[in-house]
Amino acid sequence: MPETASDSRLRWRCRRGMLELDLILQEFLDKGYDLLDAKQKQLLDVMLEYPDQLLFDLLLGNMISSDKDIAQFVTRIRNTLRT
C-alpha cells in the first residue's frame, strides 16, 4: 500500500468519477502496487492522466491500447482483480 506524499497523491488520483474505476484502482493499489518497479509505476502515472471514460474502456476491456506497454499493464491490473 502506498505511503509517501507522492504515493498519497497517486491514491487521490485513483479517486475517479466512476465507481467501477474506484473499485478496480483501489483494489490494485492495495494488492498490486508494492510489487511494481519504477517503470511500471510510471506507466500507472501515465494511465491516471487519461480521461475517466478512456480509463474505463481500457480497464473494462472495451478497448485495447495500441501502446504495447500500456496494454500489458492493463492486463496486469485486470489479472490482479481475479486473485
Binding site: R15, R16, G17, M18, L19, P51, D52, Q53
Partner: peptide
C-alpha cells in the same frame, strides 16, 4: 476536489 472531468457526471 477532483479534476473537473473526473466529476461524477462522467458516470
Amino acid at each position: 476536489k477532483v479534476f473537473p472531468t473526473r466529476s461524477h457526471t462522467v458516470a
